[in-house]
Simulated scan of single mutants.
Amino acid sequence: MTSIDNLALDDHGSTDDRAPLVLLHGLTYDRTQWQPLLRELDRIDPGRRVLAVDLPGHGESPRSATYRSGAVVDAVHDAVTAAGLRAPVLVGHSLGAVLATIYAARYPARAVLNVDQPLRPGGFEGLVKQVWPVLSGPDWRQIWDRLLGGMGIDQLPADARELVRTRTTPRPDLLLGYWEEIMSSAAGQLAAQREHELRFIAEHDIAYVYVSGSEPDPAFTTWLTELVPSARVEVLSGGGHFPHLAQPAELARICSLVAVD
């Protein structure tokens, strides 16, 4: 483990002419979520520079005064810069894919791999606003457990299920902190921001790949490709919300291909 600019991370490989990868995990998890992917990358693309980051407040990274997305993305960029990386491929799962998308619209990036994050707040925004009083009280854990129950963990292989269940630290400060923007934003504001970011990505020819655990809603695919005509959708079935753990070899293949496109 290395600490760079106040973020804990694992730094793999060495800088060469291959685009580096930056791996961003989902809410309440940590950089160990990427261990299966890292093993596969070491097998098919050995030596590529890869940073697996613990987001602020997660894993071995310290807690932060704010978890607003802009501040978190700035912290990631500071670590990326301090590590000597330029224009990386951002690989993000769930919340991490939101941050990867924002990063690519704010800082130099080669590509974004969005792992199972449909980006449009929509119904999730409504849900968070509805349950916010519970999240702010002693029964907050029941909300997280309800969400986790719908993520398809039972579809994962046993070792991946164990990783999901043990390498997570749900805390009310994380849920309230990372979702605070949902509560403080006007209806439609976050959706408009995501669309602005995706248009920027399209205008600057940044590759964008959406990796889903099941066939995405056709309306989502239409929405995404209207904003980023070159965007690709890859389906890695069998892992619910965690396709990177169900099929790490396939995700490694996608990472390696996108990094050289």
Rank of each mutant, 00 (worst) to 15 (best):
S61V: 09
D217T: 03
L27V: 04
L7R: 00
W223V: 01
L119E: 08
G92P: 03
A111Y: 02
E40N: 12
A186F: 13
L119K: 07
V258P: 02
T169A: 15
S69R: 11
Q189Y: 11
A187Y: 15
D261I: 06
L198P: 06
L176P: 06
R161G: 02
S69H: 15
I44R: 13
L148F: 15
I4L: 15
G26H: 01
L38H: 08
A249Y: 07
D139V: 03
V128S: 06
G96M: 01
L236Q: 00
L37Q: 11
A252M: 09
D30P: 11
G84Y: 04
F220V: 07
L90K: 00
L113I: 14
S184T: 14
A82T: 12
D17K: 10
D145F: 10
S256E: 14
R146H: 12
P118V: 05
W132I: 01
L156R: 07
F124V: 06
D11N: 12
K129Y: 02
L227V: 08
I143L: 05
I102Q: 15
R18T: 06
E125V: 04
A252E: 00
A249S: 15
L37R: 05
V72H: 07
R48V: 04
W34T: 07
T222S: 08
V209W: 11
A79K: 05
A19V: 13
D5P: 02
S230Y: 10
L224A: 01
H204S: 04
E250G: 05
V50C: 07
E40C: 14
S61Q: 07
S3N: 13
P218Y: 08
A75D: 09
L236S: 09
I143R: 05
L7M: 03
G238M: 06
D154R: 00
V211A: 02
P172E: 10
S230A: 15
S61L: 10
V131E: 15
P20S: 03
V72T: 12
T101L: 09
V112R: 04
E125T: 12
G26A: 09
S237G: 13
A111K: 01
V128I: 15
G96E: 15
A191K: 10
H58F: 08
L27I: 14
D74S: 07
P218K: 03
G137F: 13
